[in-house]
Nucleic acid binder design. Structure first.
Lengths: 176, 176
DNA sequence: CGCGAATCGTTACACTCGCAACCATTTCGT
DNA sequence: ACGAAATGGTTGCGAGTGTAACGATTCGCG
């Protein structure tokens, strides 16, 4: 049973991963080289430019980044003087983040570059295809998240049932 | 000049990156947990199942992986007994790689899972849309590679011309 | 109130990744 | 035929990332 033929070249997750990798390598090199900016930092600036005053957690949600990644990006941006941080008056755990003038300047330089890159990409397909693509990506992302969540719960279920992994390699040893 | 509005939510490279991340996290967790297999290892097995006897370099090309990643994946697979390696008779630098019986067994278990995952994803869109998506991904990947290459050569040009970066931001500063 | 659970943000750690540097071997130019 | 350059593959190292543990604060609820 089951198709034994899996051609990597036509396997959707593989194709998406290759495309993402090519794109982000190119973009990361450009941002890093010209502005000393990593992609997480750039994302934080983009989000905070659009929504000033968010907390770190909110930035993480909006940008789909890990809370840890946001924390690190924010700290680097603070050190570089590109962000300002205050403590929320009503909840002293929360931070209130805003781009500084220097951060805004970076945004004004980087945003057009990013949009140029996107335009250059989209130039290879029609407007209709671009819209279609956008839609499909949305659908697939949502679906992938659903599947991912159900896999996670399966695994948790299995774990609480005392089941173990099937084959060898007991990786991921935890200590301390 | 220049659009100052960049909404991360609609920025193509961002969307692709999110989708790739969701997918590969889900897949990696499943493979890792059940078979002690990383994605690079899985890719090597998939390629070598389809094309037995390739060298490491050829596997890297077919799978779009870095030569280093292939080297490491191959070594892990060898240690796990999932691959066999010989030296090419006509060129003793080249290796000749083949999946072992154990490797083939892994493939027979993993391939259906991978294809199930893909099918579950594609179930959310029509067949025609799937074909369209496949085509668009191909076009965009090619385009992204062209752009990436031209950025690289610009940079090299600039470097040999002794030009410097535009704004402040010490590039490639060793952090930490 | 009071105390345990939940939340925000950070840090520690184990791991991964890719570039550059490096051997070994082969090819090329003359 | 011989040294230089190219190629296959590995390794060293700096940097990035996610998970878990952690301190601080706030919330839930009796």
């Amino acid at each position: 049973m089951a198709s034994l033929l899996l051609e990597l070249e036509h396997f959707l997750p593989y194709r998406i991963s290759v495309l993402a990798n090519v794109m982000s390598t190119a973009i990361a090199a450009a941002y890093e080289e010209r502005f000393g900016l990593t992609i997480p930092e750039w994302r934080v600036i983009a989000v905070l430019t659009r929504y000033p005053g968010l907390s770190a957690r909110e930035v993480a949600q909006k940008s789909r980044m890990d809370a840890v990644a946001v924390s690190r990006a924010v700290n680097r941006l603070l050190r570089a003087g590109r962000l300002r941080r205050a403590v929320a008056a009503d909840d002293r755990r929360r931070s209130v983040l805003q781009v500084s003038d220097a951060g805004a300047a970076v945004y004004r330089e980087v945003a057009p570059l990013a949009l140029d890159f996107e335009r250059a990409l989209l130039a290879s397909i029609s407007t209709a295809e671009g819209a279609q693509l956008d839609r499909l990506l949305g659908v697939l992302t949502e679906r992938a998240e659903t599947i991912s969540a159900s896999l996670r719960s399966d695994r948790n279920l299995a774990r609480t049932n005392g089941r173990t992994a099937r084959t060898a390699a007991p990786r991921r040893a935890r200590r301390r």
